[in-house]
Amino acid sequence: MLNIKKLHKSYPIGDSSLHVLKGIDLSVDSGEMVAIMGSSGSGKSTLLNIIGMLDEADEGEYILDGVPIKNLTEKKAAIYRNKFLGFIFQSFNLINYKNALDNVALPLYYQGMKRQERQELALFHLGKVGLEPWAHHLPNELSGGQKQRVAIARALAANPKLLLADEPTGALDTKTSYEIMEFIQQLNDEGKTILIVTHEEDIAQMCKRIVRLKDGLIMEDEKVEQVRASQYV
């Protein structure tokens, strides 16, 4: 599904540059649920952004579903993002003037789907996260957990091969966090490949594999016994 070799990334800071990723090798198979852990500054978000094609690597090889991701034009990157990837952000990143339904339907709009069709599909995905009654509410009328569920529905709408979550529970309380994790686990059970960046140990333990980063290198990469979130809910 995902193959990364010798990935490097630096950011310019004034005259010098900060070497964030110093040669990452990572391979993720279909159906895996991987937590990427590390303290802040370890490069975990940078890695996720590169995987998500939101950012570009300086060096190294990145193959996603057999397609080498390199020197993409903006247009091509847009098409790949739309086709391959679903994003879940810590700060939800919903468009605040669009209601839940329209937010979910947005990736489908960029796929060129007809309005009627995408509204139906968006409603179906909202139903899956249990927010069908809230379809016509604006984001600021929803709670944090609800917003994140709308964001998940949006990430799922385009039926991506890979789901990327950047601190998906970072802005939520423990109870809501577990509810969201329970939902993400269900998606994984259904066969979605999921990558989660987190610095919370309990969230990481709910994945099937934990990759620990430190100073831009992978320190540890272990399969773990998945803790089901449902037992806390």
Binding site: G52, L54, E74, K75, A78, I79, R81, N82, K83, F87, N93, L94, I95, L106, P107, Y110, Q111, R154, A158
Partner: peptide
């Protein structure tokens, strides 16, 4: 920010 969200969801620069 909205532009960023749209791009993450697959909006082309032209759109």
């Amino acid at each position: 920010k909205e532009i960023g969200i749209r791009k993450a969801l697959g909006a082309s620069p032209k759109s």
